Simulated scan of single mutants.
Amino acid sequence: MTALVFLIGGAILAANIWIVARTQDRIESDLLVCAAEPVGLVFGTSYWARGGGRNPYYTARLDAASRLLRLRRVQHLLLSGDNRTRFYNEPVTMWRDLRSANVRNTDMTLDYAGFSTFDSLIRAKKIFDVDRVLLITQDWHLPRALFIADALGMEAKGCAIPTYPTAGTWRLRIREWLARVGTLGDLYLWDRQPYFLGPREPLQMTPF
């Protein structure tokens, strides 16, 4: 039993080291020097924190996305998130808050079927014809997202969003460690497919 625990732990550690090593050189933590790309992909997350109040990860992603657009590090934002019910709609919530921050409607496209990181990226590639992209999310999320983008043949860079530490961050990081292992299975073992694809909708980008 002890040997099995060590074997599983070693596999998890090895998978994480490999994914981080393959992607770390394409992650910037300063918005001012994040790579300039045509499209910024903003990953959806809940507006509300589990313990109540506004989710700081959501706020940080939206603040960074609007700043990157103003800095012209990206030309267009693809807002990808969960739209599971009419009471829970991550893309529309992001769109409303960005409109309140004076982001033009023509500078945003909503992806209503970004049910996971995997789905958001494969839909960006196959539905919205995105080949070059700046991924906008927290530093602990970027290695997995970049690794998936690489597997899909996308030219992707990561912009790590400044976020103040909050209670429960350690749970997210542990979950992310496990999710990275699952990603290897998705890509190389059980040929995971997105929940929903649909027809192609190439992005329509408006000049600044």
Score class of each variant (00 low, 15 high):
residue 8 I to Y: 01
residue 134 L to I: 12
residue 159 C to Q: 00
residue 60 A to L: 06
residue 176 E to Q: 03
residue 116 S to Q: 03
residue 187 L to R: 00
residue 63 D to Q: 14
residue 108 M to L: 06
residue 6 F to Q: 13
residue 37 E to D: 10
residue 31 L to I: 15
residue 150 D to K: 04
residue 133 V to P: 01
residue 107 D to C: 14
residue 136 I to T: 00
residue 89 N to T: 09
residue 71 L to T: 12
residue 190 W to I: 06
residue 101 A to T: 09
residue 73 R to H: 09
residue 174 I to K: 09
residue 170 W to K: 15
residue 196 F to T: 07
residue 46 S to C: 04
residue 116 S to E: 05
residue 86 R to H: 13
residue 7 L to S: 10
residue 40 G to C: 08
residue 160 A to G: 02
residue 63 D to N: 05
residue 140 W to V: 15
residue 78 L to A: 11
residue 123 R to W: 00
residue 129 D to L: 11
residue 207 P to V: 07
residue 165 P to H: 07
residue 97 D to G: 03
residue 118 F to G: 12
residue 121 L to K: 07
residue 9 G to Q: 02
residue 133 V to T: 09
residue 184 L to I: 13
residue 18 W to I: 10
residue 56 P to T: 03
residue 80 S to A: 06
residue 19 I to M: 04
residue 20 V to K: 03
residue 147 F to K: 02
residue 103 V to Q: 05
residue 192 R to D: 15
residue 58 Y to L: 11
residue 119 D to C: 01
residue 95 W to I: 08
residue 147 F to H: 01
residue 11 A to T: 10
residue 77 L to H: 07
residue 120 S to M: 13
residue 87 F to P: 03
residue 99 R to L: 09
residue 11 A to H: 10
residue 27 I to P: 02
residue 168 G to A: 08
residue 152 L to F: 07
residue 120 S to H: 09
residue 25 D to Q: 14
residue 190 W to G: 12
residue 1 M to K: 04
